[in-house]
Structures are given as structure tokens and as C-alpha cells.
Amino acid sequence: MSAVRQDVVALRRSAPAISPARRLTNALMGGLISLGTLLVVAPLILIFYYLLTTGLQALSPEFFTQTPAPLGETGGGLKNAIIGSITMLSMASVIGILVGVAGGIFLSEYPKHPLMPTIRMLSDVLAGIPAIVMGLVVYGLLVLRFGFSGMAGAIALGFLMIPIVVRTTEETLKLVPRATREAGLALGLPRWKVILQIVLPAAAGGIVTGIMLALARVAGEAAPLLFTAFGNNTVTTNLTEPMSALPVEIFKLATSAYETDRQLAQAASLVLILLILITSLLARYFSSPRKYRAK
């Protein structure tokens, strides 16, 4: 028996070590992966560098307090676009939260309902519809009848928010342990009270995160607003009037021939990106406790 084993050991000792080709591939791929990562991160750093160096120069108090200068004059700001963005995003949030959270509750709490698979699929499909197409849809639905309005823009943005809120709400609600629901039901609470008073509060952090992420996503969208809110050079919070938004102004100013317009676009880009950054950082903050994530 021992003799047999000696043979095997001798055989194993002669087994080839790792071939140079394998070593080389290993090292090469490690290098390529690091290089690839560098290439992925580089554009972001370049864009931030560009925006900080050019946008900060153009940023002035007037940017926040004035409307765009009339054609041919220099100066002016984008108060109209800032107010317009805030107004439309607030209205869009109402739509996005109402339908999105309800949809999330439906998918998570009524999994046996016959409509559940359809709604889930349509919500997923809706998430993939290009923003510009959503703009065209709302154009056909509202603008053709009532003309350009902030409301039409807000609805287009709200539609875009819905699938994002649905998904995060559903995922967060599913993380709430079954035992929590059963405890509520065992107390004799009706199901709707269990959902609204026990399950939703337990999942609040994740749902708020989803809403913030959806907001950050649509805050930068100009495509769905071009044919709905259209733009407006005066300050308004009246949702029945045409309304401007920061991304729409950036789009218009960037393609303008005037150097001052371009500077305004750069300042607006910096402000927009900072707003989006703050929103997404807040979203991270709300999700950070992760009560139901562990295990």
C-alpha cells in the first residue's frame, strides 16, 4: 500500500508548475482591468474639472435673481429656469410618489392578485421607455388640446418617476420581515392598517431613497420638457403657463452662437449637477441605516 502511494507522490512532484502563459495572462488581465477602470472614471473627472473651471466664473448673484437678457444683450440669469424646475419637480413628485408608492405596495403586498404580473411587467417596460418618447406622448395627450404648460412638463416627468419609485418601494417593502406583518395581523389590525402603520413606516428609509433617486434622475431631463413645458423667459409658478427648466435652458444656450450664452449654460450645468449631487447624497443618507438589509 505504501509503495503505491510513493509512486503517486513521485508522480505529483513531477506535475508542471503554473505555466508562464498562465502567469502572464493573469498579470496582463489585472493590468487591463485597472486601466479600464481608469478609462471609465476619467470622463467624469474631466467633466467636473471643466464645469468647475468654467462654471464658477460665470456664476454670479444675478444668475439666481435675474431672467435671461433680451436677445443681443449680455448678462442676465436663469431665475425663471430655477423656479420652473422646482415647480415642475414638486408637481412631478406628487404624481410619482402617489402612483409609484401605490404600485410598489400593490406588487409587494398583493402578490397573488391576477393583475400583479401585468403591472410589474408594464412598470419595468415603462422604465425603459426613452424620456423623449414620454415627452411626445404627453404632447399628444395634453399639449395638442391645452397648449404648452408647466403641468404637461410635470406630468411627463412624473410618468418617468413612477417606475423608479415602484421598483424601490417594492424592493424595500419586501425586506420588511413577514413576522412584522403577522404580528400586526395577530393584534387584530385590519390589513390596510398593518400596511400603512407598520409596514410602510418600517420601510420609509428605502422608499424615500427611491423617491430621491427618481428625482435626481428626472431633474436633469430636458428631452421630455421640450414639447411639453416648452420654456419661458419670465418667472412663473403657474402650471398652466409654459415653463422653463434648467436642463431645457442648457440645451438652448449650449447650441447658441453667443459666448455669453455658453457661459450661462456652463453656470447652469454646474448648478444643476450640484443639485443632483445633493439629492443623491440625501438619498444615500436615507438608505444608510439599512435596518432590514442585513442577513
Binding site: 474631466l46 464645469l51 431633474a219 449631487l277
Partner: peptide
């Protein structure tokens, strides 16, 4: 963050830089 940069800002950067 790359995903958070708005489309128009990418366009502006491409156009200007």
C-alpha cells in the same frame, strides 16, 4: 455619478471641450 450627469451636460461638454 456618471449616471447622474444630465444628458445636456454631456452634450455641452462634448460640444465645448
Amino acid at each position: 455619478l456618471l449616471a447622474a450627469v444630465p444628458s445636456v451636460v454631456y452634450g455641452l461638454w462634448a460640444l465645448v471641450v
